[in-house]
């Protein structure tokens, strides 16, 4: 299981469902055997993608789902750059009707962008039990 340990406190991003720092053992395993590629996004670029999605497709994505929208849009823009007509499928896992405060913060420019902090990660990892 990919984890930051029980003592790690995740930053207060709006995607409550992604503020979990213990990845499913199965997904961690699929990453270990190179079956999938992992990407990290900051929340501003995700809300930007979510707003673009709402203004074209009409559905306001949940903050969590805006990450998938961002990933799909980036893949589509990569296709445009390379002139490739690939087929992209993503999971729009939920709507954001109960999360409009997060969109409000985005529009007001008060959305914080958390930077990856190696120090706090190293500190959290120190508390992990040692296994063979």
């Amino acid at each position: 299981m990919h984890t930051l340990g029980s003592q790690f406190i995740p930053p207060a991003t709006h995607s409550g469902g992604l503020r979990y720092h213990g990845m499913a053992p199965l997904v961690s395993h699929l990453k270990e055997i190179n079956a999938l590629e992992a990407k990290a996004y900051g929340q501003k670029e995700c809300f930007e993608a979510g707003v673009n999605f709402a203004r074209t497709e009409g559905i306001v994505p949940a903050p969590e789902a805006t990450h998938a929208v961002r990933g799909a849009i980036d893949a589509a823009l990569e296709c445009k750059k390379n002139g490739e007509s690939k087929t992209i499928l993503f999971n729009l896992c939920g709507h954001g009707h109960f999360d409009m405060k997060a969109y409000g913060d985005y529009f007001e420019g008060s959305l914080a962008e958390d930077k990856f902090d190696k120090g706090s990660m190293d500190k959290a990892l120190e508390d992990l039990p040692k296994i063979a």
Partner: peptide, 10 residues
């Protein structure tokens, strides 16, 4: 060709 999903718990 490409699948995309967000993951918290997975």
């Amino acid at each position: 060709d490409i699948l995309v999903g967000c993951t918290g718990g997975g």
